[in-house]
Write a protein that binds this DNA or RNA. Structure first.
Lengths: 188, 188
DNA sequence: GTTGTGTGTGACTGAACAGTCACAACTGCG
DNA sequence: CGCAGTTGTGACTGTTCAGTCACACACAAC
């Protein structure tokens, strides 16, 4: 099978392209209603392919969702690392990462998909994907910030708070309690 | 028990008893797989009644889920307030509330259902229930602790971190990154 | 041409599930 | 007794959706 296929590194077939295209759409589409409530046909439609083709390229709906979750966490880790240089104290770097995460809210897909993945952790493969993704993010943040464990834990907790703010749409709730929760987390 | 007397304020019919019985079971059952992935029949089975009866008592599956979420947040708020006296500084009271919340993890239902509710916020009625519940909890914590807004925000963020730890089952992950995330959050 | 390989789909099947409805069984009450 | 109200269910119905499969189309190489 060392035929016309990818010699060495880099050359990918059209199917491989479609796979990444579809995963990219899957992140956005699953972000709306989550794993169980989103039909594969909806992802297929968004990617302009037939549902049958999606089932050919992925190992069932579960395989598609897991691929989307993996991609999501990879994007998050990349965005966090990209948003920080290597100057300043660990605390300052962590602060810049926090701002980078808040910027991520603008496209709420990456946030929402994490929430849906955490919610679907009763499916073992999804729980594994969440653990993998979390490991990626925590390690990336630790490496790029050099902060101590307690500070990193607070950073993750603050991220989780952002998830709540986004999902509940607290920006649209003009009450004292809502302002307590989403203080400092500004988004359109 | 007392006969089926009921005139004037508060009709205490058997149906009302069943309603609260069923909601109690719904909290536990929905906590496993969430709104969309849990059939009403499963809740009915757990409550030892027929699915048809559940549909009679509640306004569809959505009404049942919303009732469960409301009950869940009420229980959480009650547990937090119950776990704290009125002695010590606000910071100390908040610390005791944090411990009370960690105790709640023992029965993971109340935690898991919150996650599922947040995940299902694309359904307007569920988003409203989450906002209501959050309002209840934040106000209860603010009143009972007397802490300042920033401290309360940190408390909520820490709660959200607990949700992640429980859903991902980090207690079963014996790696450095997992210990960073769940440090201080001990549960069986 | 034919043969082979990879991309892509229409048309199906089968199961799960929300919601309904007619009807049973029990309870007073006149 | 018959009548009315309330609790409770079995037996449906219609829909949605995951997954499959035979087939079509493209493009090589021979």
């Amino acid at each position: 099978m060392t035929e016309t296929r990818s010699r060495g590194a880099g050359i990918r077939s059209t199917a491989e392209d479609q796979r990444v295209r579809i995963v990219a759409r899957a992140v956005d589409v699953f972000a709306v209603s989550g794993y169980k409530a989103t039909p594969v046909a909806e992802v297929a439609g968004a990617a302009k392919v037939s549902p049958a083709y999606v089932f050919r390229l992925f190992d069932g709906k579960l395989g598609l969702f897991v691929a989307a979750v993996d991609d999501c966490y990879a994007q998050v880790a990349a965005a966090l690392v990209a948003g920080v240089g290597d100057d300043g104290t660990p605390t300052e770097r962590l602060e810049r990462m926090t701002q980078a995460y808040i910027e991520l809210i603008r496209d709420r897909s990456l946030i929402a998909l994490q929430v849906h993945a955490q919610s679907a952790c009763d499916v073992p493969e999804i729980k594994d994907a969440v653990r993998r993704g979390l490991a990626t993010v925590v390690r990336a943040v630790a490496d790029a910030s050099g902060a101590d464990p307690d500070a990193i834990q607070r950073f993750i907790a603050y991220g989780q708070l952002c998830h709540l703010v986004v999902q509940a749409g607290l920006a649209d709730v003009d009450t004292a309690w809502a302002r307590v929760v989403d203080h400092g987390i500004r988004h359109d």
